[in-house]
Each structure stands twice: as structure tokens, then as C-alpha cells.
Write a protein that binds this DNA or RNA. Structure first.
Length: 463
RNA sequence: UCCUCGGUAGCUCAGUGGUAGAGCGGUCGGCUGUUAACCGAUUGGUCGUAGGUUCGAAUCCCACCCGGGGAGCCA
């Protein structure tokens, strides 16, 4: 008989149906002559209650083997439950134990664990309610992202993971080498001789696929990257990872307004998709993790995002009656307290702030006519702050070269990027979104390490 | 990296100079419909590591390691 998934049985199962399930035991409640067990196969938050009694062959042996964590196959008949917690349950005819889990050493209990502890057992934590729900929602987010872009005709670009250029001149990079680090070849100046290295020059793990996305947008118009990126920064926070996934759409023949339109439509779509596809998981998060996430999702989906310029944002912050720790004046980068005030207190919905001072933004952002600001945009959302950062790119070769010079950017390694402005340049724009931060925002999870299966952070690359 | 709080049983924690504790978990027993089952009993420790002060240190001091929260930076 074909194995059914628990999610399917809970949704469509009918009494009298014969089914087979395979999964892992979450709990066992043993009474004198029979027992209840809950089996979870990862397909849903809820497990299927299985009723076992002496009709199961070798009941006395089996019942001692099916402790929390054991993997089993159960065949039987679906029946309407006499108990209260579930509509339907499985009356077992046969049970096969694939692998036992010694209760003396199996680290997961039936009760709640701290996320800090679960991180020390990342190979087992996906079997818990919360982490299981996180990864189903993470998957739904990824599926939604692809569907959103594919339905719009965007090409998914596989940007390189190894790169010889440091895109934004910012952040610490991981070096990629095949040198024997105990015997580094040196040149006559006594420095490491990278001409003997694998690529003949220093190479790094990418910090962004944006520049390559711009290349591909110049052929396919609309593209997006969705892949891993790396930062070697020694930042120990609940919002940073050394390895994380980033989504970066790039559109040719698009300006800053089109960029904002896409960002707004994109966020609304992802939230709606997850609500539609993971309602139980989202309800679970709303109950146990953060009681505001469903209201937040509703806010995102049903409100037009506020759109203001940076200059207007500074005016509003200066007029605010609130005292800020960091003083406000034109030219500063917005601190998280400022972003929170705009999104949470003033507008109470997502706000897109545009046209920041050029001094605080990257070299590739398009210079505005006033020569003071650039065509940048940040989407600030209630409860999380900046979730999306983007810009219209500088498509004018002379202006771009001037900006590169002003900002002391090493231009040699991005000659190809400048070539795009030499040959058939067009206005174009795009944005970047940290995928794990999106999942954090969606689920209300406090620590980014709990929304990626195997987090890489300073001093932690286990599993 | 900076600030701050913490590290005691498998887990969550109490214990602030004098015999190392509780709840949960595990184990054993009981229970004919349980739902983090319940009831009874029981098991369980190099008090993060290494020094120091003291008659005596989980407790006080120093260094280091690790974790949480916040900041900076960002995604």
C-alpha cells in the first residue's frame, strides 16, 4: 500500500480508510493495555495520533521500542477520534520499527526547549514543532519568490560564488585559495604571491550577485539572483550570518519608481503566499512566538506603502516630539530608532524612503540632478526596520567613473561592469533582500540562527 | 569589535563563604481514551576552564573560553 503523508491524511482522510504512514514518534502515552502515540513526518505541524493495542503483533515488544524519536511505519485504519484533540486518528494493525531512539540519551524531550540548546543539536532540532514550522515557512518563502519572478518572466541568474571583485568595497571578505597556508609563496617584496594561486590573483567568496545580475539584465531585461552570499565580519548579533541567502532582482529600462513598485508588489505577494500555503504554521507562530505577526502580515498586504524622500524623512524626524538617542540632521544615515519611528509610530505601515545623500550610499547608485542625493530606496517595515535596500543604477559612464574616483573604488577589476555603460547602456534598477531576514520577519523568530538550517557565524561552523 | 547579563543534573533554573537543591526528563510501578496525560517511587553533578584568596569556595578575586541581550555595521 502506498504511504500517505500525515498532512494529507489530516486534511482528506476519511474513517474506514486503510493507510500506511512513516515518520518519527513525538510522544507516547502508555496506559495499562493500550497506548497513544503521535507520529510526525514533517509534512505538517500536527502529527497523526496512532492508537496501539494488543491486536498489534508483538505489542509488548513494539511498545517498548517506540519512544520519542524512534522512526516507525504504521499500517492501519483511520477512525473518528473518541478524544478531543483531533478529528481523526489511526488505529494500528501493524507497526514496524526502523530505528529506535534510546530515551536515556535522545536529547529532545516532549516539553519545550530553549532555542540556544536546540542550536547545539542542529542535526535534530528540525524535529521540534517550532523549528519544523520555520523550515516549512522558509521553503514556502523560497517557492513564492521563484513563482513571483517566474510568473513575471524574470530569469533566475546563477551568480558566481567565487569572485575577484569586491562589489561595494565594503565588508570583510572570505579569501578563497588553494595555497598550502603553511608555505605561502612570496614575491620579491615579501608579500604573498597571488600569481601562483589558483586564480592567479586574490579571490573571494561573493558578498553580492548584484553586479553580475546587472550584466545579465543587459541581455534579458528582467532577472533575479537567489543564492548564498558571504561576509567575514565579526558581528555577533541576532540578525547577522557569515553565510546567508540573498534575493536580488534587476530590471533594465526601469527607474526608481518602477523599483519601488516591484518591491511593494513583491513583499505583498510573498506574505500572501505564505499565509495561503502555511496557515497552521503561521497560526502557531502567532500564538507561541510573536502575537503580532498575523496583524503585521495583514498590514503589509492591505496597505499601500508610504513613499517619502530622505529629505522629507529628516524633516519629519526633526518635527517629532520623540527624543532620539542619535540626533537628527540632514546627512546622517538613519539609525534603527529613526526607522522604527517612521514605520511604527508615524505611519504604522511600511515606508519606502528614497533619495539618500550620496555620501552614505554605494558608488553604483544613480546620481540625482541636485548632485547631492542618489536614487536609492530602503523599504522600512514595522517591527523589523530595513527589509529591502535598492536603487536605480548609474547608467552614465562619465558620471559612474567620476563617482568611482570620488569614492576611491578599485576600478580595474570591474572593467566589465563599466563596459555595460559603453555598449548599449540603459536605465536600470534593482534591490536586494536578505532571505533569512524575510523569514525572521515572517515568523517572528528573534534569532536569525534559528531560521537557517545550519547557521554559520563567528566560531560556529558545526554540522 | 564594544557594552551588559549569564555558564550548577540530560533540559529549565534556585542556591552569594560552612553536608550540592527543585521542577521537568529518564527508570520502575499503577491506571480502559490519553493530548507537554495523570498518580506514586526512584535515578541523576569534575558547579565552563585554569590560577589565586581563605581553616574552608558553586559563592570572593584574576585570566581565558562559551552563550544570551543590546550597540556598531549591514542583508
Amino acid at each position: 500500500m502506498e504511504t500517505r503523508r500525515v498532512a494529507d491524511i489530516l486534511k482528506n482522510g476519511q474513517p474506514e480508510e486503510k493507510v500506511v504512514i512513516k515518520g518519527w514518534v513525538r510522544t507516547k502515552r502508555e496506559l495499562k493495555d493500550f497506548a497513544f502515540t503521535e507520529v510526525n513526518d514533517g509534512s505538517s505541524l500536527a502529527g497523526l495520533q496512532v492508537v496501539l493495542d494488543s491486536e498489534v503483533p508483538e505489542y509488548n515488544t513494539i511498545i517498548k521500542q517506540i519512544n520519542t524519536g524512534a522512526s516507525i511505519e504504521v499500517g492501519g485504519t483511520l477512525v473518528a477520534s473518541q478524544g478531543k484533540g483531533q478529528k481523526i486518528e489511526l488505529k494500528a494493525d501493524s507497526v514496524m520499527v526502523y530505528g529506535e531512539a534510546d530515551p536515556e540519551t535522545y536529547p529532545l524531550q516532549k516539553k519545550r526547549h530553549s532555542f540556544e540548546f536546540l542550536r547545539t543539536i542542529s542535526h535534530l532540532r528540525s524535529r521540534t514543532n517550532t523549528i519544523g514550522a520555520v523550515f516549512r515557512v522558509r521553503n514556502a518563502c523560497a517557492a513564492a519568490i521563484h513563482k513571483f519572478f517566474q510568473d513575471k518572466g524574470f530569469l533566475w541568474i546563477h551568480s558566481p560564488i567565487i569572485t575577484a571583485s569586491d562589489c561595494e568595497g565594503a565588508g570583510e571578505l572570505f579569501t578563497v585559495t588553494n595555497f598550502d597556508l603553511n608555505k605561502l609563496p612570496q614575491n620579491k617584496q615579501g608579500q604573498v604571491d597571488f600569481t601562483q594561486d589558483f586564480f592567479g590573483k586574490p579571490a573571494y567568496l561573493t558578498v553580492s550577485g548584484q553586479l553580475q545580475a546587472e550584466v545579465m539584465a543587459m541581455a534579458f531585461q528582467n532577472v533575479y539572483t537567489f543564492g548564498p552570499t558571504f561576509r567575514a565580519e565579526n558581528s555577533n548579533t541576532s540578525r547577522h550570518l557569515a553565510e546567508f541567502w540573498m534575493v536580488e532582482p534587476e530590471m533594465a529600462f526601469c527607474d526608481l519608481e518602477g523599483d519601488q513598485n516591484l518591491a511593494e508588489e513583491f513583499l505583498k505577494y510573498i506574505f500572501q503566499y505564505v499565509l495561503d500555503h502555511c496557515p497552521d504554521d503561521m497560526t502557531f507562530f502567532n500564538k507561541w512566538i510573536d502575537k503580532s505577526i498575523l496583524a503585521t502580515a495583514d498590514n503589509i498586504i492591505n496597505n499601500d506603502f508610504e513613499r517619502i524622500t530622505y529629505t522629507k524623512a529628516i524633516e519629519l524626524l526633526e518635527k517629532a516630539k520623540k527624543k532620539f538617542e542619535f540626533p537628527v540632521e540632514w546627512g546622517i544615515d538613519l539609525q534603527s530608532e529613526h526607522e522604527r519611528y517612521l514605520a511604527e509610530e508615524l505611519f504604522k505601515k511600511p515606508v519606502i524612503v528614497t533619495n539618500y545623500p550620496k555620501e552614505i550610499k554605494a558608488f553604483y547608485m544613480r546620481l540625482d540632478d541636485d548632485e547631492k542625493t542618489v536614487a536609492a530606496m530602503d523599504v522600512l517595515a514595522p517591527n523589523i526596520g530595513e527589509i529591502i535596500g535598492g536603487s536605480q543604477r548609474e547608467e552614465r559612464l562619465d558620471v559612474l567613473e567620476r563617482r568611482i574616483q570620488e569614492m576611491n573604488i578599485e576600478a580595474d577589476s570591474i572593467w566589465w561592469y563599466l563596459d555595460l555603460r559603453r555598449y548599449g547602456t540603459v536605465p536600470h534598477a534593482g534591490f536586494g533582500l536578505g532571505f533569512e531576514r524575510l523569514v525572521q520577519f515572517m515568523t517572528g523568530m528573534n534569532n536569525i540562527r534559528d531560521v537557517i538550517p545550519f547557521p554559520r557565524t563567528p566560531l560556529n561552523a558545526d554540522f
